[in-house]
Amino acid sequence: MDLNEMLSYGFMQRALIGGSLIAILCSVLGVFLVLRRLSLIGDGLAHVTFGSVALTLLFRLQSVYMTLAVIPVVLASALGILKLAQKARIYGDAAIGMVSAIGIATGVLLASVAGGFNVDLFSYLFGNILSISSSELAIAAGLFVIVIAGVIMFYNELFASTFDEELAKSSGLDTDRINAVLVLLTALTVVLAMKVVGIMLISALLILPAVTALQVAKGFKAAIISAAAIGVGTVICGISVSFVLNLPTGATIVIINFVVFLLAFALRGLLRHS
């Protein structure tokens, strides 16, 4: 099968465009999250989304209303993770773990009350990037514009606060507000991208391109740009390989990301020795 034939399919075009947009968002946010040791927040928030979706399914809400109902719950949970880490004197990873466990437990309980697991609920867990509809692509594009605009507006403050929060505070920056902006942008990305790519891929795209970029990047801006390029490259590569070899797309993207990470890790070692 040649490239032209692959690109002639509408579902492939949508998958490549939607996947690339989500990859850029996750990779850019991932650099900030990984450096702040909040890399699992995507996983935690995805589990909260899972619980919230179960709730909406219990009330038999339609898909559009479902997303609208889930957004405030997940945004509130994101702020809850921050508050837990700041006020309850527990580390960020423990706060994420708590909220994540509560999210998934709520989902399972509600699904059980509703009379068993629903197929729709599982589609949120695993997603299917090849089945992105035109309306989902439009949502991904809208999300892309909002989140990228947010990152650009707050870029220098996010960078300063990620580098050293106390120094940023001593410069008069409102680090609480900056932290809230970061987790809210992440929460928005997770909610809207989860139905498209699933929990596993969101979590992988938040972490893997960022850690790969951090192996080789010389500078903060370079790390952000490299992470976005790696995210897009691996998603396009993963979708294409999975299509040609008839493999599960999400899993293929994750494995390709890991291979690229290993190559970057080896390259870093070589550069250090030379």
């Binding site: 450096l35 220098n156 403050e157 960078f159 300063a160 580098f163 120094l167 940023a168 410069s171 008069g172 920056l173 970029a213 951090l214 990047a217 010389k218 500078g219 903060f220 801006k221 370079a222 790390a223």
Partner: peptide
């Protein structure tokens, strides 16, 4: 974090944010 990806130039520039 010794692996933080910031150059000397970028770090000094952060001081101008205030």
């Amino acid at each position: 974090n010794p692996h933080f990806p910031a150059t000397v130039d970028e770090v000094i520039r952060l001081g101008r944010l205030s």
